[in-house]
């Protein structure tokens, strides 16, 4: 039932993404020739594909973070990972630095630095809330670096700023899709390899130890792989805020906390949000990350308020 519904929704979203916009392209003309064909194939199709890839990757990465840290709010935005990657890429872009492998390598390096800073800062803190607050503080500082860099460079390119603050799919071409596709093709097998240990980590460190797993090491591996996934996405689309939180939440709400469903929901959410971002205030295009941030955080607050009330005082 749910699967059928999701399949229909997915098809609708995909066709809608290809059709809507200027010019409007009717279903019957999607594969016809002419200028409309060019718009669909050269502009909308790569954008759609990148959205699917990015959403899927963020969904999986979010799930990995949350399960391995056993904290439903362990999201890239609150751990300095997105912030670090975005700040690094922004610095490269606004200063026009030519870095080999840009934006991929700077994003990976930035994510590593951000995550490292958070880990360093978190040492000695007790409990999930403190960890999140510290991560949020690190993220805020990294965001300040991002904004400062763009102010320093006196960047007139606000598109770059918006993209790396919240995420956006504007101006995607096939080259982007190709690079992201290849990068994800490399990282995804690693993620799949992590899944068994993730299942054990979820049960707690003691259970992991009795299952013969070194919890600390396994966690580092899982975190590294999820940072890679996030960095790839952030390098090209920005953080697409809170997808890494929303997708696993939805998957869990439907009773399946599996990586597969988290990936599916991530992909669908990004495409749906991007469609909304392009159309609700047409012809103005909103940053897709703004929408996902507003929706994602509203869900987060609900989750937190519910979680607490269940615990008797």
């Amino acid at each position: 039932m749910i699967r059928g519904f999701l399949a229909v929704l997915a098809v609708l979203l995909i066709i809608g993404s290809l059709m809507l916009g200027t010019p409007f392209v009717g279903v019957n003309r999607l594969f016809a020739g002419g200028i409309e064909h060019i718009v669909v194939v050269e502009l909308r199709a790569p954008r759609l594909l990148l959205g699917l890839l990015a959403g899927g990757a963020l969904g999986v990465a979010g799930l990995m973070l949350q399960e391995s840290l056993r904290n439903p709010l362990a999201v890239p935005e609150l751990l300095g990972v997105s912030g670090g990657a975005a700040a690094a890429v922004t610095v490269c872009v606004v200063f026009g630095l030519t870095v080999p492998g840009a934006p991929l390598l700077p994003a990976v390096a930035g994510a590593a630095v951000g995550a490292g800073l958070t880990l360093l800062a978190v040492r000695g803190a007790v409990g999930p809330e403190a960890t999140l607050l510290i991560g949020a503080a690190v993220s805020a500082a990294l965001q300040a670096v991002l904004l400062a860099a763009s102010a320093l460079a006196d960047s007139r390119d606000q598109g770059v700023l918006v993209r790396y603050l919240l995420g956006s799919l504007t101006g995607t071409d096939w080259a982007d899709v190709l690079v992201v596709g290849i990068a994800l093709a490399v990282v995804t097998p690693l993620a799949v390899l992590c899944l068994p240990s993730l299942k054990v980590l979820r049960l707690g460190d003691e259970a992991a130890a009795s299952a013969g797993l070194n919890a600390g090491r396994a966690r580092v591996v899982v975190l590294t792989v999820s940072c890679l996934l996030i960095a790839v996405v952030v390098g090209f689309c920005g953080p697409i805020a809170w997808i890494g939180f929303l997708a696993p939440q939805l998957a869990r709400a439907l009773g399946t906390a599996s990586a597969f469903w988290s990936m599916v929901f991530g992909a669908l959410l990004v495409v749906a949000a991007d469609l909304a971002a392009r159309t609700v205030l047409y012809p103005i295009e909103l940053p897709v990350g703004g929408l996902t941030a507003v929706i994602g955080v509203a869900v987060g607050i609900l989750v937190l308020s519910r979680r607490r009330r269940r615990v008797p005082a």
Binding site: L73, L78, L132, L133, A136, A241, V297, G300, I301, L304
Partner: peptide, 8 residues
């Protein structure tokens, strides 16, 4: 934490 989320 909720305040941070709200701010975001």
């Amino acid at each position: 934490v909720i305040g941070v989320l709200l701010s975001a």
